Each structure stands twice: as structure tokens, then as C-alpha cells.
Simulated scan of single mutants.
Amino acid sequence: MKVIEVTHPIREDQFIQEDVAMAFGFFDGMHRGHDQVFQALEERARAGQLKKAVMTFDPHPSVVLNPERKRTDYLTPISDKIDILQHYDIDYCIVINFSSKFASVSAETFIQDYIIKNHVKEVVAGFDFTFGKYGKGNMMILQEMEDFNTTIVGKQEMDSEKISTTAIRQALKDGDLQKANEQLGYRYRIKGTVVQGEKRGRTIGFPTANVQPSDDYVFPKKGVYAVSMLLGSSNKLYRGVANVGVKPTFHDPSQAQVVIEVNLFDFNENIYGERVEVYWHHFLRPEIKFDGIDPLVEQMNKDTEQAKYLLSVDFNDDVSYNI
């Protein structure tokens, strides 16, 4: 897949030079709703014997358009999004830097410079995709164009609720991993690097890997989770318990930074500097402050037993992206 990073105005040498079917959207989460867009893209490309392309944007438009409610953390940061697109055998991925200059582009200019000049013969997007200054461009306008065909993908639902990035983000914030993972169509993951921590866990029998996220991910609700973690060096998956939070038994919650710590079962290796991926299976309990080390250790033993049981039921060594 060829990735083309564009800062407005798009240059002549950045235009796609062969006829394509192109999907448009921000696609944070690459969830089941987005999958319907990519399935439609596959069908239109095959029918027209076209190459497949995707146009997406970075950062989220709210950074420019709605700074009071800007979204700066993501389910799938741009690097993850590009990795997942590889699974759809996309030929071209255009990543538009969503800047103030790009936000001021008129709908007419967007159609001419970003669709027609890119040899787009089939446009595919969700029903709520908008473009151009003030979001004046929409899918109905594109359907009226004669230079290309337009396919509108309707609302996708699960349990009578729209599948959406917003719903998945809220589910993670609520600790509802089942809902988040079902709407995603795969297990939520956070990539990162194991860094030096306080090393307190090893003194109480629970050595942990302090995972520094590699990008601006959405953090699940503060609490304790049953997880699995993929070690990059061995490409091997291990089961464990993760804590997301500020460790209130040891720190002032108002002063401490939220961190991710993972205790792997039956594991005793030095993995500082390792690139890892944490997969989130089950929410066990909220993070709480304990009255000393002993009750904390007692609860951690209970967490471990509960996590081992839950992971024995649903653990799967195949962690590849799979809708």
C-alpha cells in the first residue's frame, strides 16, 4: 500500500495517476461500521476493475473546528489505522493533514482537487460523511456529480444502537469491554514500550511491566483488567492482569499520572525496552485505595485468580486484526 501524506494544497506529484474507487472517512477504531464501508469499496472496485484507495485525516477535525471539545486521543492512532488498512489490501492511502487551511477549503474545491484530480471513479463513504468549509459538502451532493459514482453506506447497528467511535470510546470509559470489543469487531489494543517504573510490585510478589503507550490512545476506565500482552521480540502472547490508574494506595490521586502496569502470569524475564501490545479482555474492578499492603496483596491474589479463569474461557493465541 502506498501512503501519501498531504498538506493542503495537494501537489501535482501527489495525485493518484490511475483510476480508483476511494473510501472517505476519519475511521477511528476501524470498527464494524467502517468494515461495511470497506466491503462496499471492495465491491465497487471489483465491479469497475479499479484500484482501491482510502482518504483519511489527521489529526481529528475537532482539533481545528471545535477546540473546546477537541479529540486528541484515539482508538486507532494513524499508524495503527494504516496497519489495519493493510488487511483490506488497499492500494493507496491518502492522509490529509487536517489544518486550518484545509478546513477552509470549499466543498467545490474539495471535489475538484481531492476527488476528480485523484482519478476517483467510485466514491464510497458513510451516510454522515461531510466535507468542505463548514461541512457544507455531503453525500447527497456527491450523488449528483457526473464525474464519478457514489455509494452511500447506511447506519450500522448492534443491539439497536448505532455502531460508532463515540459509543466505543464511552464503553471503554465505562469499563464495558464487552460492548467496546463487540462494536470494534476485534479486541481493543494499546501498543507501547516497557519502561522503568517504581519497581514496587516485585517487592510484594507481583512484578509488573510499566507500559508507556507509543501514541495517544484512549485509556480504558481506571481499574483492574484481565489482559493479554504480545511481546514484540518473540511474537508470543502472555496472559496477565493490568492496572490502569494512579495507584492511590501509594500516591495522591490528584498529583499522580495515570499509568498502565501489567503483571504477566508465570513470567520472570527482563523486558525493559521491549515493544508490546496489550489486549483488553475483561474489566475486573475499579481502582481503589487500600489501607496498607496486606489487603492490597490479598485483593491482587483474588484479581489474579479471577483473571486466570476468565482468560481460560476466551483466550485465543490469534491476535491478528479480524472483523
Rank of each mutant, 00 (worst) to 15 (best):
E5G: 00
K162C: 06
E5W: 02
M229D: 06
N322K: 15
K81H: 08
A107C: 05
P59S: 05
E182R: 13
V276T: 07
L41V: 07
Q178S: 13
M300V: 13
V262M: 03
T72F: 06
D252M: 10
L296D: 11
H119N: 15
K117G: 04
M22C: 15
D147Y: 08
Q212P: 00
Q49I: 01
M158T: 07
D314G: 07
F127V: 10
A242M: 05
R275D: 06
F283Q: 11
K136Y: 08
G25A: 08
F148T: 02
L85T: 01
E161Q: 13
K289F: 13
A45P: 12
G175S: 08
F15R: 13
D216P: 03
D80K: 14
Q183T: 00
H282G: 06
G232A: 14
T249H: 08
T7D: 08
I190N: 03
Q299L: 01
S79F: 12
Y92T: 03
R239D: 01
M300I: 15
D216H: 13
A226E: 10
R11C: 03
V262Q: 04
E298N: 12
A167L: 14
S62I: 02
T193R: 09
A171C: 02
I4P: 01
N66G: 00
V278A: 12
A171M: 04
V64I: 15
K179F: 07
Y225D: 08
Y92F: 15
E43K: 15
V297S: 11
H251S: 13
T130H: 14
N235C: 07
V218E: 05
L177D: 10
M300D: 03
R285C: 10
V313Y: 06
D291T: 15
Y321P: 05
V6M: 02
Q178V: 10
P286A: 12
Y217L: 09
Y186N: 01
I288C: 10
E157S: 12
